[in-house]
Design a protein around this nucleic acid. Structure first.
Length: 310
DNA sequence: GCACAGGTAGATT
DNA sequence: AATCTACCTGTG
């Protein structure tokens, strides 16, 4: 180890990124259910890990985003951060092409989260994360994923507080279903284990899937155990930048029923409506609607809470 | 103590 | 083809 403040602290100097956004929007982007490996630390610093890179993000008083990487940085870490944050994509301009002039609710949702981004996470890690997501809250998904990383993933260099990366699919394939259950995955362990074996038998399958056009890529993801329509679309939206992917979950079903009058519509019907109504960037629209809906009723049960005494 | 959680898959009608 | 259910388990 040579001297210098960077290696002493374990983190590189803060560097400004070409991004301005509000604190609530940053929180929604990093911790709103796209990614599950970010934690807010004292001082409003977000720390996250993906594909062997550990990064810290914070906003300055003017709302500009600043980043610091674990030191010594992994090769290509700076480029990995730009890709992860999709800095080459102008989401505000894209949001402007959504039908916000004719869709009041969409306009309101965009207005609530100006600058909301779709992350471009590693494909394989996104698949793993969303296999863990079935009927779990974000906090619990984060706990499961963190346990798998701590127990079975590679320790990152630099600051010990940088944590561990997720194990790759080859490493997951070496785990038993019981190992995964010990990480609180529950019945999801069988799905993760099944996917790991599937991928182990097909080298290059995942990479090829990521490179295919959206319909073909989705068709292939649906072959995986534990991957249905919703998870396939989440993996393609958050892990492959396919902004046409339109995941339909309980929040979107609620939004469509309450805001668009689509009461009683099935997920497949809502998915079709989304594609037609929102177009090629339906996934971006979905993220605004999702964020808005969660902000309206955070952590609340459906109305009609039964009274225990009756 | 008990329903619920950003679902999926297999059984049943 | 549409609807019902089991699957795990930490939180509220």
């Amino acid at each position: 180890m040579t001297g210098g403040t960077q290696t002493q602290s374990g983190w590189s100097d803060w560097e400004a990124l070409p991004l301005r956004l509000g604190d609530a929007v940053l929180t929604e982007t990093l911790d709103g259910g796209q990614a599950f490996r970010w934690a807010r630390r004292p001082g409003g610093i977000w720390q996250g890990v993906w594909s062997g890179v550990a990064a810290r993000l914070r906003l300055d008083g003017a709302g500009r985003l600043h980043a610091s990487l674990s030191a010594p940085p992994a090769p290509g870490a700076a480029a990995a951060l730009r890709r992860y944050l999709a800095l080459d994509t102008d989401f505000e301009a894209l949001a402007d092409t959504l039908p916000r002039r004719t869709d009041k609710h969409l306009a309101a949702s965009i207005g609530c989260f100006p600058g909301l981004r779709i992350l471009r996470q590693p494909f394989g890690e996104t698949l793993f994360s969303f296999l863990c997501s079935a009927t779990k809250r974000i906090l619990q998904i984060k706990q499961m994923v963190a346990l798998v990383a701590e127990r079975h993933g590679p320790r990152l260099s630099g600051d010990p507080a940088a944590g561990s990366g997720l194990p790759g699919w080859e490493a997951i394939a070496a785990l038993s279903e019981a190992d995964l259950r010990l990480c609180l995955l529950g019945f999801r362990a069988r799905h993760v284990h099944g996917v790991a074996r599937f991928l182990a038998a097909r080298p290059g399958w995942l990479e090829e899937t990521e490179s295919l056009p959206y319909p073909a890529a989705k068709e292939r993801l649906l072959l995986l155990p534990g991957v249905g329509e919703k998870i396939a679309d989440c993996v393609l939206l958050f892990g492959a930048g396919r902004l046409e992917a339109f995941p339909v979950d309980v929040w979107i079903l609620r939004a469509m029923a309450d805001r668009y009058g689509l009461v009683g519509w099935k997920p497949a019907q809502v998915a079709h409506f989304g594609r037609v109504h929102f177009g090629q960037l339906a996934g971006l629209a979905q993220q605004y609607l999702f964020a808005y809906e969660r902000s309206q009723r955070p952590n609340r049960r459906p109305a009609g809470n039964p009274t225990p005494g009756s």
